[in-house]
Amino acid sequence: MLTITDLHARIGDTEILKGLTLHVPAGEIHAIMGPNGAGKSTLSNVLGGKPGYEVTGGSVAFRGQDLLALAPHERAAAGLFLGFQYPVEIPGVSNVQFLREALNSQRRQRGEEPLSGGEFLKLAKDRAGLLQMDMDMLKRQVNVGFSGGEKKRAEMVQMGILDPSFALLDETDSGLDIDALRIVGAGINAIMRSPNKAVLLITHYQRLLDVVTPDKVSILADGRIVETGGPELALRLEAEGYDSVMA
């Protein structure tokens, strides 16, 4: 599904990713953990195509396409979804309007028929229910006045509606209370746990992985994947810290 080979990227003069290699096949939920400043968010931004990052080497193949050659909206249409660590506010635009336009833009790019208002609302209602979110919330402006937890849940509803084949979730668990964490975790399982889909889950904490059991866990440190293992690697990290596990 996603193959990253020897990826180098920098912001300005600072090299952040220094030869990152990672393969995530379809059907896999892969957690990435790592100390602050290791390059986790840079990885997410580079894969999403955020301006300001320069890829200086390596390649990323996504479902047989050269991901880095695509514009951000083309990556989205190809099936890539980024769950933002800090979801952005768009004043004056309702979630319903935003998501309907986004979904239909993706469908047009893929040569599919756009959804009608009624069809879209039915889908939105279904997905909001999955995350135990009120439809009223979807009528509110995108992330405006949302609490930290609401923003993250709204991200998951967006993911449910856009139905990507690959989700890269950047610290989706940060800022969530225990109940919200369970809801979000269950949402990830319900939406993304499938033989045709895959997830890259960037997190600092085991507690999300208690709900969403990863197939693989990798440690990202100093711009590279330094170790990959099963779910037990995350438990070891939690118990012993990065220093002892990476030593």
Partner: peptide
């Protein structure tokens, strides 16, 4: 830039994204 990237990551082309934000 954050708003623009956010909207584009969800599938909107650059001009669609600008139009949406401006209309908002």
């Amino acid at each position: 830039d954050e708003q623009l990237f956010y909207a584009m990551q969800r599938g909107l082309g650059e001009e669609e994204a600008v139009a949406l934000i401006v209309n908002g």
